[in-house]
């Protein structure tokens, strides 16, 4: 079902939000590989397309 696929996308975006933007900040080296940037972009696109999908199909 497209709904469950969208839910997975939303969960990934929520995960990226939290891992990269949440949690305690404690001094130390914060190293993030360049690939992260792509991941965040991909994730945001995924949310936008999920939302479009949900709106098309409704959510009965």
């Amino acid at each position: 079902m497209s709904t469950s696929l969208a839910e997975q996308d939303v969960a990934l975006i929520d995960l990226v939000d939290r891992l990269l933007g949440g949690g305690v900040v404690i001094a130390g080296d914060i190293t993030l590989a360049v690939a992260d940037v792509d991941l965040v972009h991909v994730s945001l696109r995924a949310l936008i397309s999920s939302v479009a999908k949900l709106e098309e199909g409704g959510l009965e």
Binding site: R18, L19, L20, G22, G23, V24, V25, I26, G28, D29, I30, T31, L32
Partner: peptide, 14 residues
């Protein structure tokens, strides 16, 4: 408390 992803230290003491 989860710690910000990617927080690294050289060793236990640090």
């Amino acid at each position: 408390l989860p710690v910000r992803y990617g927080t690294r230290f050289a060793d236990d003491e640090d």
